[in-house]
Design a protein around this nucleic acid. Structure first.
Lengths: 215, 215
DNA sequence: TTCGCAGTTTGTGTATACATTGCTCTTGCC
DNA sequence: GGCAAGAGCAATGTATACACAAACTGCGAA
C-alpha cells in the first residue's frame, strides 16, 4: 500500500469518525510526523480530502477540516435526493434486476425482527448491499462517482443522528419499498420511494440534531 | 499564480479542447519538461485531473486521458438531468429570483435575432450567465461542486456537436422557458423545462455524433 | 522460429533540501 | 496610547535526488 493512500485513509477516517474536529488545521509537517511519512504523501492526501469536500484550503493558514452545520446537512440531502432518485430510476430501467426481489424480502424480514446491537450491524451491511446493487444496476460511472463522494460526506453527518430501533424498522420498510419498485421495473415508483425514505431520514436527523444541539 | 495551478489549467484546457487526445499517456517527466515546471506541481495537476474524471491512473503505465464514447455521453446526461433539475428546482424555490425575468427576455430576444458568429459567442455567455444565476440562487455548495465537475466533462463532449443556427434558436427558447419558470417561482415547471432542454440537447448531440462518427 | 529468462531502462513513489509567501510580533513614530 | 512598518519566523510551494517496480528488449536455448 502506498504511503499517500495510507495517509489519505487515515485522515479521512479520523475526520469521518469525528476524531478530528471541524475547524482543525491540518499542518503538513505535523501530520507527516504523526503519520510517520514525509510531507509529499501528506500533501497528496490533503489534496484528495479537499476534492472530497472534507477540508478546505485557506491561503496562508493551510488546509482546515470543513465545518458541518444543519444548513449543510439540508444542502447535502438536496443533492442526495437528486442522485439517489436518478440512480434508482436507472436501476429500475435496467435489465440486471434479478436480486432486488430477494433484497426486498430481506428488508421485510429485518423490519419484523428485533434490532439487537449485533443485528443492527448486519442491517447496515444490508443497506450497503442495496446501495451497491443499485449502483451496479444503474451502470453509470459518473453517477457512481458523484454518489461515492456524497457518501463520504454523509458518513460524517450520520454521526449526528442516533438511530433507535423504531427508526430502523421504519427504515427497513422504506428500503423494502425501494427494492420492490426496482424489482418490478418501475422507475417512477422507485424514485418516489427513494424520495420518501430520504425525507424521513432527514427529518429524523434534524429532529435529533435540534434536540441535542451541537455534538 | 502557483506552478501547480498553471500546470493544471494548461493540461485541463488541452484535454477539453481536444489538443490532447483520449488515451494519451501523461508522463510526469515529459509534461514537466513541456510545461517548464518540476515534477511536483505536475503530479498535483494530474491528481486533480483524475479527481475531475478527465484522466485515469493505470498501475505501471501512469495516468492516461480518459476515453469519451457515446455511452459516456448518455451517462453524463443522466447525471446532468438529475443535477440541473435539482438546481433549477432549488432556484425556483429561493427568494433571490429578481433577475430571471430579465434573463428570460434576453433569451427571447436571442431566439429572434440571426445568429452570426459574433452573437453566437455572446449567446454562449448568456447561457453561462443563466447557469451561474441558477447556481447562485440555489445556494447549495454541494450541488454547485457536483455541477462544476460535471461541466468540465461536458465542455469536452460539446466539441462533438456542431451547433447550427436552427438548434441555437431552439436552445434559446428552451432556456427562456427555464428562466421564466424560475422567475415565477414554479419548481416543477422549472425542472420540467430543464428536462426538456437537456433531452433536446442530447438528441442533437447524438444525431450529429452518429452522422459524423468519431472525430 | 518461438518461448523464456534476465538485464536494462523508464517511470512512478518518497524523501529532503531550498525558495517564497504570509503572518505575527515588536519597535518606533505620530 | 495607538497605529504602522519592518524584521523574523513558520508553513506552504517547488525542485531534485534516490529507491523501487514494471515493462520492454535482447539473447540463448529448445
Amino acid at each position: 500500500m502506498r504511503a499517500s493512500d495510507k495517509a489519505y485513509e487515515s485522515l479521512r477516517t479520523d475526520i469521518i469518525e469525528w476524531r478530528i474536529a471541524p475547524g482543525t488545521v491540518l499542518a503538513e509537517v505535523e501530520q507527516s510526523e504523526r503519520l510517520g511519512v514525509s510531507r509529499t504523501p501528506v500533501r497528496e492526501a490533503l489534496g484528495r480530502l479537499v476534492a472530497d469536500g472534507l477540508a478546505v484550503q485557506q491561503r496562508g493558514r493551510g488546509t482546515v477540516v470543513s465545518e458541518v452545520s444543519d444548513d449543510h446537512v439540508e444542502d447535502l440531502f438536496v443533492l442526495r435526493v437528486a442522485l439517489e432518485c436518478a440512480s434508482a430510476k436507472e436501476a429500475a430501467s435496467s435489465t440486471h434486476r434479478e436480486n432486488f426481489a430477494e433484497l426486498a424480502e430481506r428488508f421485510d424480514a429485518a423490519a419484523h425482527e428485533v434490532m439487537s446491537p449485533g443485528s443492527r450491524e448486519a442491517y447496515y451491511q444490508l443497506t450497503q448491499l442495496l446501495d451497491d446493487s443499485i449502483d451496479e444496476a444503474a451502470n453509470n460511472k459518473y453517477l457512481s462517482n458523484a454518489l461515492r463522494t456524497l457518501r463520504v460526506n454523509l458518513q460524517r453527518v450520520r454521526r449526528m443522528a442516533k438511530d433507535n430501533p423504531r427508526r430502523l424498522k421504519e427504515s427497513a420498510r422504506e428500503h423494502a419499498a425501494i427494492a420492490r419498485a426496482i424489482a418490478s421495473g418501475n422507475p417512477e415508483v422507485a424514485s418516489a420511494a427513494t424520495t420518501v425514505h430520504l425525507h424521513q431520514s432527514l427529518t429524523h436527523i434534524m429532529a435529533h440534531s435540534a434536540g441535542s444541539e451541537r455534538q
